Measured scan of single mutants.
Amino acid sequence: MEVRTIKVFTTVDNINLHTQVVDMSMTYGQQFGPTYLDGADVTKIKPHNSHEGKTFYVLPNDDTLRVEAFEYYHTTDPSFLGRYMSALNHTKKWKYPQVNGLTSIKWADNNCYLATALLTLQQIELKFNPPALQDAYYRARAGEAANFCALILAYCNKTVGELGDVRETMSYLFQHANLDSCKRVLNVVCKTCGQQQTTLKGVEAVMYMGTLSYEQFKKGVQIPCTCGKQATKYLVQQESPFVMMSAPPAQYELKHGTFTCASEYTGNYQCGHYKHITSKETLYCIDGALLTKSSEYKGPITDVFYKENSYTTTIK
């Protein structure tokens, strides 16, 4: 009895394709271990004539594949690729409408935090270190965002349907971005203890939790000093293409032309909904596939993004 075979390709990165001759009487799992086709788990399936010449994702289970996976995804987590594939199996079914010149995501599976993050990423200057993220990001900007969303979920250790947080998501993504040249110098002034300067680099240099107003941050924000008295913390120097200011959701007025974009969060910790506000020729609110415009805006804002380049204080 002759062994019926077909020729397929296996890959971990969709760049390096490895030619395989597979036995049609055995499952993919018996031949390769966990195997995925377009995100779908085909591990328990036997090869079919229609699979001839198709590319299958496999887990990096030998040295060659491990090197290829690390170079593309910059992670050695053995569960990463499987999590990416199972997320992709959902995100490829989502709709990605162009809204006001940006790629958004039609609401499904509690994905409003991903839509808000995706919209924000198209408006701030950011370059990702893992080629996987950078490639998928370019495709997302062009309207094909399924891979990018699935990668975000995998890097953030999230599953489809789980509630997510924009600030946490951005923080994970910033860790995989090139923020080497970003720098922030802060000064804390206390009447009792004097003053202390701190220099922050990388992710810490672009994120701040405690106030939404970048102007206020430049002037000074009140913080408790270690001595128990009130101290003032203010920005001395900022070198970065953008800054992200966050605070627990509270009524906040966004003035046209003073910011790049913002995240609105309605609801409580267990259950809520994100919308995205962007400042173009007027203010726009993007909620999944829905767009509304207004000249002014007041609502429960939790993150505001500002364009920056270089700032030095005039406070002496």
Results as ranks from 00 to 15, higher is better:
139 R>T: 15
69 A>C: 15
26 M>G: 13
40 A>Y: 14
219 K>M: 12
193 C>A: 02
208 Y>F: 08
286 I>K: 00
11 T>S: 15
108 A>W: 05
118 L>M: 14
281 E>D: 15
161 G>F: 03
238 Q>K: 01
40 A>R: 10
41 D>M: 11
15 I>D: 06
77 D>M: 06
98 Q>P: 06
193 C>V: 02
246 S>V: 03
310 S>E: 09
265 Y>Q: 02
112 C>H: 04
127 K>L: 10
244 M>L: 06
197 Q>F: 10
282 T>K: 10
169 T>M: 10
193 C>W: 00
315 I>M: 15
29 G>I: 05
172 Y>Q: 08
187 N>W: 08
33 G>R: 05
118 L>R: 03
63 D>P: 11
265 Y>G: 03
55 T>K: 15
238 Q>D: 01
316 K>Y: 14
296 E>K: 15
238 Q>H: 02
63 D>K: 09
293 K>D: 08
260 T>R: 06
134 Q>K: 13
100 N>C: 10
156 C>N: 06
133 L>W: 02
201 K>S: 13
34 P>C: 12
210 G>Y: 02
214 Y>V: 10
246 S>I: 00
55 T>H: 15
144 E>P: 05
270 Q>D: 06
28 Y>T: 04
136 A>D: 03
294 S>C: 10
22 V>S: 10
306 Y>S: 00
15 I>H: 09
157 N>K: 14
110 N>K: 03
22 V>E: 03
167 R>S: 04
95 K>C: 08
173 L>P: 01
214 Y>N: 02
216 Q>W: 05
283 L>V: 10
266 T>Q: 07
274 Y>L: 02
167 R>Q: 03
118 L>T: 03
199 T>P: 04
144 E>V: 08
59 L>G: 10
251 Q>I: 14
206 V>P: 02
138 Y>N: 13
19 T>N: 14
216 Q>R: 10
219 K>H: 10
86 S>R: 13
73 Y>T: 03
206 V>L: 06
153 L>H: 03
4 R>F: 11
22 V>F: 07
266 T>W: 07
159 T>C: 11
299 G>T: 00
211 T>Q: 10
47 P>V: 09
19 T>D: 08
247 A>E: 02
165 D>M: 05
209 M>H: 09
257 G>N: 13
305 F>D: 03
254 L>K: 01
30 Q>V: 12
129 N>G: 09
235 L>S: 01
127 K>Y: 08
45 I>F: 15
297 Y>P: 01
299 G>D: 02
172 Y>M: 08
213 S>T: 04
252 Y>P: 00
87 A>T: 05
174 F>M: 07
283 L>H: 01
177 A>E: 02
290 L>E: 09
255 K>Q: 11
267 G>H: 06
24 M>F: 09
264 E>R: 00
83 R>S: 08
91 T>Q: 03
255 K>L: 09
302 T>M: 00
132 A>T: 04
258 T>S: 12
313 T>D: 15
208 Y>M: 07
288 G>C: 00
60 P>L: 08
303 D>Y: 00
164 G>I: 02
151 L>S: 03
219 K>V: 12
237 Q>V: 13
73 Y>D: 05
167 R>V: 01
253 E>T: 15
201 K>T: 13
306 Y>L: 01
240 S>V: 01
84 Y>D: 04
230 Q>G: 09
149 C>V: 08
144 E>W: 07
206 V>C: 10
198 T>V: 13
90 H>P: 04
300 P>E: 14
73 Y>S: 03
240 S>E: 02
301 I>G: 00
145 A>S: 05
132 A>F: 04
206 V>E: 00
16 N>K: 08
143 G>I: 02
259 F>V: 01
272 G>I: 00
16 N>R: 08
215 E>Y: 06
49 N>T: 12
48 H>P: 10
68 E>R: 10
229 K>V: 10
53 G>I: 07
225 C>E: 00
126 L>R: 03
111 N>F: 00
64 T>N: 11
234 Y>N: 07
128 F>M: 05
64 T>W: 12
303 D>G: 00
281 E>L: 02
33 G>Q: 05
80 F>S: 04
112 C>D: 04
305 F>V: 06
183 K>G: 04
62 D>N: 12
213 S>W: 03
216 Q>E: 12
183 K>F: 11
32 F>E: 06
23 D>C: 13
236 V>F: 07
315 I>K: 12
